[in-house]
Every structure is written in C-alpha cells, then in structure tokens.
C-alpha cells in the first residue's frame, strides 16, 4: 500500500472544499484548495484568522471530512477510508502538534510520549519506551521524563508534545501554531528543535503560523486567503 516512489509527492490536495452547515447558515470555509507536499520538506501555512488554516489542518489530519475534493497521502485516497481505517492511518503516518500542547495531565512526560504507540499495540513495549525515552532526550527532557505533565513549564510541555508527535515515526507532522503560546525565546528554541528534527528524520512538516519570522525560515510557504491558496511558490 505504501510503496510509492520517493519522487511522488507525499501529499496531494485536489480541489478540497469544506462548507459548515448548521440550521440556518451554510458557511464555506475552504473553497477549492490545491497543493502538494514533497517528502521531507518543511512548509509554513499562513493566512489571517478565519482563512481556513485550522480547518485545512484538521482535514489533512483526517479528523474532519471534507465536503468535496480529494487528498492523497502516500498514494492513498484518504477520503475513501472508514473511521477505523482513518484512525489506524492517523496513528501510523500523521503526527499532531497543537498550539496548546494538549498533554494528558494524569500521565508523565514519558507516558504521554509513548501513548500513541501503546494505544495501538495494546501495551507499553520495551521498544516503545526506549524510543519515547530517546525522543525525550532529543528534546532535552530526559531528566523530566517521570514528571507529571502538570509539573512541566509551557516550553517543556510543548517539547513533550513534539516528542509525542514523532513517536510513531510519522511521514507528516501537522503543527497548528506550535509556538503561538510561547514567549519569543522559547518559541525560537522550539522552532529550532523542529527544524533540527525535520532535517535529521526527513519528516515532512506543515506548520500553520502567524509568525512571519518563523515562516521565513521554512523552505516554502502556502498562503490562504478566504478559503483558497493564493501563493504556493515552487520549491
């Protein structure tokens, strides 16, 4: 299933649309999105509030179904999978980093990182724990791995969230304002960490950010305006 050649895009989005419908209104948020992501690139997604960045990320993360259009990842049309197949795909190939870290408060840093793996295989394996410990060491938190999430600082929590997103060696990491809740220094450190990891692992990153400085340090930018992509400079 996942034997696509390296030259093919990791992600291909074609005419993706999303309209939210409630009792009284129809609100079109995405109005025909087209772009591709190559393997191993780091792309910043920018746009004003309400431009559809978060909606696009949640659709690409298979948490929300589009109204129409397709998106293929690793050669697989994700609009055709069932709920359980999407859960499985998400677990194996997609990592999430949220603005508000969203760690599980009753679990330690190590347990938070190993959760995506343990939840899939049904137990905490030695291999899983070793990888989680390695990731925490990589993000500079090896001395905090047995701390409850509630005892960590904001920057530490975000680094744990980065380690958790990488736990299952995903092909794509989706980050929604990953530094938006951090001060400038901590934001810089976190972004440095992301770029280093991206270079080391070759994982594709799609980051939504308002921060021009950080966006300028990405290899490429996608700009959203009123539900459509207005610039996708060729890489």
């Amino acid at each position: 299933m996942m034997t696509t050649a390296d030259s093919t895009p990791l992600l291909e989005v074609v005419d993706l649309r999303k309209t939210f419908v409630d009792r009284y209104f129809e609100t079109p948020v995405l109005k025909g999105i087209n772009f591709t992501l190559a393997r191993g690139e780091m792309v910043a997604m920018q746009g004003s509030s309400g431009s559809g960045k978060s909606t696009l990320l949640t659709i690409l993360g298979t948490l929300l179904a589009p109204t129409s259009g397709t998106f293929r990842m690793l050669g697989q049309d994700l609009t055709r999978l069932t709920e359980s197949q999407l859960s499985e795909f998400r677990n194996r190939y997609i990592g999430f980093i949220f603005q508000h870290h969203h760690l599980l408060p009753d679990f330690t840093a190590l347990e938070n990182v190993v959760f995506p793996h343990a939840g899939r295989v049904g137990r905490e394996t030695r291999v899983g724990l070793e990888r989680a410990a390695m990731l925490l060491e990589r993000v500079g938190l090896s001395d905090r791995k047995h701390y409850r999430a509630t005892r960590l600082s904001g920057g530490q929590k975000q680094r744990v969230a980065i380690a958790r997103a990488l736990m299952n060696e995903p092909s794509l990491v989706l980050a929604d304002e990953p530094t938006g809740n951090l001060d400038r220094d901590t934001a810089n450190q976190s972004f440095e960490l992301l770029t280093e990891i991206q270079r080391e692992t070759g994982t594709t990153f799609l980051l939504s950010t308002h921060d021009e400085l950080l966006a300028s340090r990405c290899e490429r930018r996608i700009r959203l305006l009123d539900g459509v992509v207005v610039t996708t400079p060729a890489h």
Partner: peptide, 16 residues
C-alpha cells in the same frame, strides 16, 4: 472530553 479528543487525534481507536 479534551483528553479523549487528543487520544483520538493520535489515532487511538474508538474501541480503546
């Protein structure tokens, strides 16, 4: 609910 949402976001199944 938020924690359950997070678990679901990293692919933990409904059955879990």
């Amino acid at each position: 609910r938020p924690e359950i949402g997070i678990m679901r976001s990293f692919g933990v199944s409904q059955r879990f």
